[in-house]
Amino acid sequence: MPITKTMRAATAALSMTTLLGAVPALADTVNIYTYREPNLVQPLLDAFTESTGIKTQVLFAKKGLAQRIASEGENTPADLIMTVDISRLDSAAKLGITQPIKLDSVEQNIPAEFRDPDGQWIGLTQRARIIYASKERVKEQAITYEELADPKWKGRICTRSGQHVYTIGLVSSMIAHLGEEKAQEWLTAVKNNLARKPTGNDRAQVKAIYAGECDIALGNTYYMGKMETNEKDPEQKEWASSVRLIFPNAEGRGTHVNLSGVQLTKHAPNKEAALKLIDFLVSPEAQKIYASSNFEYPLKPGVEPDARVASWGDLKPDTLPLSKIAELRKAASEMVDRVGFDDGPAS
């Protein structure tokens, strides 16, 4: 049962109850619930089907998938969860809706620091939370996360919601490095330096820089590649050309990174086929597809980033354990609300 573009669009708009009716648990088909936009994973799934003959079905939603799997229990059609951010991976595992992934290929291809010790999730790719800086209005070649609190940036910073998982991950890392008191002081100062209320996605922040609404913004690395190569919406190429990437804390502890990952559901109806897909996703072939089509950093040692990604500069990842970021996500979320981050700068 192929998933058409129309069906993918519908999944974003319909209720989760309606969505489930579109994903029956077909034999010899891997059913995937994903928080990742389908176009980001489809090249991988197409290559998998071509290689194995096993079909895939994709159910996309921005939120609520893990909770839905929990409510479906043994009747879930979902075989795999594909998502971004260690917080979502950790949350699904703690809901008890996953089972250990036991594959030699995973242990051979994905370093231990990017795998759950109990096998409840594995990382597939890495992305960095960097700074987009105006080529015209920002002369600094290096900026740390801590320096975003400097009053010189007042009215010059754009970012997406403080409660988005990307922001929560960064705030969690700041709590880990600075301690909660100093991290809150930092977040309050960053809030006061905002040019506007947090809004939009990462691409919208680059558009805002292009429009002169702000001078720097936080965003994920791979969005730059998506904008630079966007033929359907070529104005995004103009947005991208107006900024350069700065890897924060490159001279110190390293730049904050996070994962995309995969999990095997506890009651996967097509477990054998799902494990074959996981085996494929950690293979050199799939890691190269990730690197070239999604502009993400492969996790398998020896698979190089895409040339476009390499041209942005060297990534020195922060070595803070991802498990620590997951542990601090609740504190980070509460801090975002406590300082009123999404209310924007004080008038």
Rank of each mutant, 00 (worst) to 15 (best):
R203S: 11
P284I: 08
G252D: 11
Q163I: 13
D28Q: 14
L44I: 01
R329T: 11
R127T: 13
W153S: 01
Q163W: 12
G119K: 08
M227P: 01
T159Q: 13
T56P: 00
A47G: 01
G155T: 10
L26I: 10
K154W: 04
A176R: 05
N220A: 15
G212C: 07
T34V: 03
F60C: 07
G64Y: 09
I278C: 01
M7I: 14
G64V: 11
K139Q: 13
N75M: 09
G313P: 00
D46C: 04
T4A: 04
K55R: 15
S51A: 15
A27G: 08
V243A: 10
R129I: 14
R244A: 05
V339A: 03
G123F: 02
M1Q: 09
Q108I: 06
L275N: 07
G313E: 04
A12V: 10
A307K: 14
V243H: 05
L40M: 14
Q67T: 15
I122N: 06
K271I: 09
R338M: 07
T144E: 07
R160Y: 11
F295D: 02
P77W: 11
S71Y: 07
C158Y: 12
K182N: 14
T4H: 05
K288C: 08
P2F: 05
P198T: 07
G179H: 05
L328H: 02
E50H: 08
S161I: 07
T319N: 11
Y145S: 00
V262W: 01
Y290G: 06
G200M: 08
P317K: 12
R88P: 04
N258R: 10
D85V: 13
K330F: 12
D342H: 13
N220T: 14
A176Q: 03
N39H: 13
N270I: 02
G162F: 04
E140M: 10
N258F: 09
V165G: 06
Q184S: 15
Y223Q: 13
I54C: 03
A12E: 15
R137F: 14
G155D: 12
E327V: 01
G73L: 02
E180K: 15
V339N: 00
